[in-house]
Simulated assay, not measured.
Amino acid sequence: MDDIGQKIREIRLSKGLKLKEVAELTGLSQGFLSQVETSKSSVTLQSISKIADALEVSRAYFFETEEKPAAKIEIDKEKIESKSHFNFHNSSFVYQSLSKKLENPLFEPMLVVLMPTDEEVNASIHNGQEFVYVLEGTLTVIIEDEKVQLEKGESFHINSTTPHTWFNNTTQPVKLLYIYAKH
Rank of each mutant, 00 (worst) to 15 (best):
I48H: 00
I48V: 09
S49L: 09
S49A: 12
I51S: 00
I51V: 11
D53T: 10
L55W: 02
E56L: 13
V57I: 11
V57D: 01
S58I: 02
S58Y: 08
S58N: 11
R59C: 10
A60P: 06
A60S: 15
Y61G: 00
F62H: 00
F63Y: 13
F63Q: 00
E64R: 11
E64K: 07
T65I: 02
E67T: 12
P69T: 08
P69Q: 07
A70F: 04
A71Q: 11
K72M: 12
K72H: 13
I73C: 04
I73G: 01
E74N: 14
E74W: 02
E74L: 12
E74P: 09
D76L: 05
K77S: 04
K77L: 07
E78P: 04
E78W: 10
E78G: 10
E78Q: 13
K79H: 03
E81D: 08
E81R: 08
S82E: 15
S82G: 13
K83M: 14
S84A: 12
S84G: 14
S84N: 07
H85R: 10
N87W: 08
N87V: 11
F88H: 10
H89A: 14
N90W: 03
N90M: 04
N90E: 12
S91C: 15
F93K: 05
V94P: 00
V94S: 03
V94R: 00
Y95D: 01
Q96G: 03
Q96Y: 05
S97L: 07
L98E: 07
S99E: 15
L102F: 12
L102K: 14
L102M: 15
N104D: 15
N104K: 14
N104Q: 13
P105I: 05
P105T: 06
P105Y: 13
L106A: 03
L106S: 11
F107I: 08
F107K: 01
E108G: 05
E108D: 11
E108I: 09
E108H: 05
P109A: 04
L111W: 05
V113D: 01
L114F: 07
P116F: 07
D118E: 15
E119G: 04
